[in-house]
Amino acid sequence: MPQMNLAEALIDGLIWSLRADPRATIIGRGIAGHGPEHAAEDRLKQEFGSRIIDPPTSEAAVAQLGTGAAMAGARPFVHYGTAVFAYEAWNQFINEAANIHYMSNGQLSAPVTFHLFHGIRGGGGPQHSGSPYAMYANNPGLEIVLPTSPRDAKGLMRSAMASNNPTIVIQNAQLLGLTEDVPAEDYSIPFGKAVVKRDGRDVSVIACSRSVIDALEAADILEKEGLSVEVVDIRTLAPLDVDTIVASVEKTGRMVAVDETYEICGVASELIASVVTRAFSALKTQPVRVGRPMTPVPFSPPLEAAVNPGTQKIVDACRRACKR
């Protein structure tokens, strides 16, 4: 089994998608980022150069180009680089792509994949560190995919490109270098299936994107203190696999929800709501929420670290949930 970093796996998933479907096409460049992993994109260019266009810096029209093309039978993959740039295409994502299937009563669909890099990335400052997926999740009609491992990235990308819905694959930019063995062959991972990344008895950490990696690190630290932490990666925010989350909390009786979006109306809030409204009695202690505090992401490293819901905050939250 070959080793791939997450960027290479994303690209591999795309390559299989383009091989499988002649309607698939790429709008954008820098799909593997501009960091050390950027060369992963070369394979895609070599095999499918003629099916890639490098668009102008016209975020709104590019989103609509992808959406209109999807409605007319193409399967576009639209890359935005930094997620916050897609704020300029808010209308196109929400009013057009997300609505069209419903408002045409099923006559049309918009099978477009939007690809965004989100998250605190080190010096991104207020305009390059945004994680908009909680805002997207507040709109019906969008599928939201948050890969955290190379294997998942490849399989989820494959599903995104095959999906008949507008799908946002939103990738934490700092995870692109994660490396593991990835099956060389074509495979896909279905949406709406959370995965237990680590078994535990005492507390369930339900997380997504970057926070899954931080949670696994926190679990290692806490293990030395005798706390057994279960880590669940939701993998897709829409659809959300509430069953797996609830099963984990029912097993451990304690819950920490952690995610990089803002605490208020953020993903962690939704995760807690989904548990307390379904399995309140399973909770032995008050659930704990870890998210970004309500401040723009500052530039300076110590300030940036203070807003990042990283490993230490998860460790503290687990101790609180377990009353340690």
């Binding site: 010096g123 400052g125 305009q127 723009p296 500052p298 530039f299 300076s300 300030l303």
Partner: peptide, 16 residues
């Protein structure tokens, strides 16, 4: 460089 003595107190960096 993101320092406290920066023109925006280190909050904004080169781009802001």
């Amino acid at each position: 460089l993101g320092k406290a003595s920066g023109m925006c107190g280190g909050r904004s960096g080169s781009m802001h």
